[in-house]
């Protein structure tokens, strides 16, 4: 099976190095590229030109769903389907429905947030070219990488290599898909 070319992977050794390299790759106008870091490097999002994450939109949707579910469930069961007087309380009141609606808001928000994170990251993805590289074996310990994909419209092997080595890459390797 002929291995297809996926992209370039360049190693950097420190957080400042990858920060500056990312700025250069961003300024060179690449779109399909990424940084591989062992921890979330503070400020790297800006250096990569990433927009604010969309996860909170999922969370908001989940939260609203949860609260509505709670309130309508308690109304339906207590005031509509089986009205039953307990403790002299009305069949339905937002007050005593609040604790459970509140918990469901949180529960659904949590589900939606995590689902949102997985969907936006397109995870789980146990197979990935980056994971196939020998480099990654130490990658999540203390090394930082820039990966530029071949499918980027601006991609040109030599120019990309030149850019990365100019940015201070310690080692550049090619990844197969």
């Amino acid at each position: 099976m002929a291995a297809t070319f996926y992209g370039l992977m360049a190693r950097f050794d420190t957080a400042p190095e990858i920060y500056h390299a990312a700025q250069q790759v961003r300024d060179a106008g690449y779109k399909n590229w990424d940084c591989i870091t062992p921890f979330p490097v503070h400020g790297l999002d800006g250096a990569m030109g990433l927009r604010r994450s969309n996860v909170p939109k999922f969370s908001l949707l989940g939260g609203l769903t949860g609260f509505t579910t709670g309130m309508s469930m308690i109304w339906f069961t207590g005031a509509f389907d089986y009205p039953l007087i307990v403790g002299g309380k009305p069949y339905f009141s937002p007050l005593f429905a609040f604790p459970i609606s509140y918990e469901l808001t949180i529960l659904f928000t949590a589900f939606a947030t995590i689902a949102g994170m997985f969907i936006l990251n397109w995870l789980p993805q146990h197979y990935h070219p980056v994971l196939k590289s020998k480099e990654i074996l130490r990658g999540l310990d203390d090394a930082f990488y820039v990966v530029i994909e071949a499918r980027d419209p601006k991609f040109d092997l030599n120019r990309a290599k030149a850019l990365l080595s100019q940015a201070g890459a310690k080692e550049i390797s090619e990844l197969e898909a």
Binding site: P124, Q125, H126, Y127, L131, K132
Partner: peptide, 14 residues
């Protein structure tokens, strides 16, 4: 590791 997980593994979670 990708060497460990074949490409088809990506469908497994779903």
């Amino acid at each position: 590791m990708s060497n460990l997980f074949p490409k088809s593994a990506n469908k497994l979670p779903l």
